[in-house]
Design a protein around this nucleic acid. Structure first.
Lengths: 205, 205
DNA sequence: TAAATTAGCGTACAGATGTACGCTCAAAGT
DNA sequence: ACTTTGAGCGTACATCTGTACGCTAATTTA
């Protein structure tokens, strides 16, 4: 059990993480946040920040980790829904858009820092997305009988398209997001179909 | 003809733009540059910056415009090469990678600010990339007999995959870039093939 | 030739930033 | 009951930022 002291500390730590997440929006990226701003939002003195994180970088990596968690929860949710039958692609896109909508700032940090300026950040995000890709590749290899190379390329393309659409969707109105999602589904079908054809060509040689 | 005075002014202006481009690298994005840093690099006093640009934002938009120019030159080059025959996809990817390698910082600002925090920047980059997409869609619609909607979705997917690979390639060694380019070609073929199949299905109804 | 324009500079200032240091005082450990 | 620990605070400082203001000197215009 956690002592009173540890509980309070955890609470403040969360306040810091939440404060950082809350300051993110279309016009504000993590790297533009200052330590003092975050501390201010979390209602602690700037210098108290150091009781919890070595620096802003460490806070950021914590946030990316939480993003990874969200991604994995999303995968589980998608898989569950897919079991009930229906178009896997459609279900996945809908699930993605739902999760995106209810955790915009989690995706903001993932999508932005993916091509950000901090190498550790990029690596951390890449690692999380890699999970996604390799799981998808494995799944495709097994169920759709693709060669490992093709499965990998296909998975990568799918994930690229999905995340890219996600970044675009973040600051859209619901209506536009719907259009985007529909087009995304078509694009994913292109990749899936095309991959199938390429695989057939290889098999016939 | 340009007077001595106007010439010198233009020279300094270029020095500022070049200074900004030169400060960009994997660890340094445009938005992290300060007016003073740029002025320092260009060897002028900070306050002289204002003789050329209203603020850093205006400098940045100028840089994005130059990026658009590079993109259009690239398209022209790709088209010329493609006329000589061969795989359009392969030729396009190779051209892209070449241009990327010789103008890394131009692509840095385009690729980074595409998902950056400044709305005007995002709009400017989006406009440049939109050229790309619509030209490609038009081309595909004409030569491969696609419906406008499918051509558009296909072009968007292709461009997304290419630019995404470009962002990843920026900070890779030559060898890794080769692997990436080969995989990109496969992915683009998937999209092209898949689009073809989808179009056929539509036509047969 | 005289007057007007202007690119570039130096000084100056208010505001923000990260963080070092030492204090307090409630909780945990003994 | 005592000592130790440590989360949070306030003060302080050096550094950086954007930019206002006024000057100079060379070019352009009249």
């Amino acid at each position: 059990m956690m002592g009173i002291r540890a509980q309070q500390k955890e609470k403040t730590r969360r306040a810091l993480v939440d404060a950082a997440f809350n300051q993110l929006n279309a016009e504000r990226s993590f790297s533009s946040l200052s330590l003092r701003e975050v501390a201010r939002e979390a209602k602690i003195a700037p210098t108290s920040f150091y009781r919890h994180f070595k620096d802003m970088n460490e806070l950021g990596l914590t946030m990316v980790d939480e993003g990874g968690l969200t991604l994995r929860q999303m995968m589980r949710k998608g898989r569950q829904r897919a079991e009930a039958g229906g178009s896997v692609i459609r279900i996945s896109v809908d699930t993605f858009m739902e999760v995106l909508e209810s955790n915009p700032n989690v995706f903001r940090i993932l999508l932005h820092e993916r091509s950000g300026t901090s190498a550790p950040f990029r690596a951390a995000v890449a690692r999380e997305i890699e999970h996604f890709i390799s799981e998808l590749a494995h799944y495709t290899e097994a169920t759709a009988k693709r060669s490992p190379e093709l499965a990998r390329a296909q998975a990568e393309a799918l994930v690229t398209l999905v995340f890219n659409a996600g970044a675009a969707a973040l600051d859209m109105k619901r209506v536009d997001r719907k259009v985007l999602a529909d087009r995304l589904v078509i694009q994913l079908r292109m990749v899936a179909k095309g991959s199938e054809v390429l695989q057939q060509k290889m098999d016939n040689k």
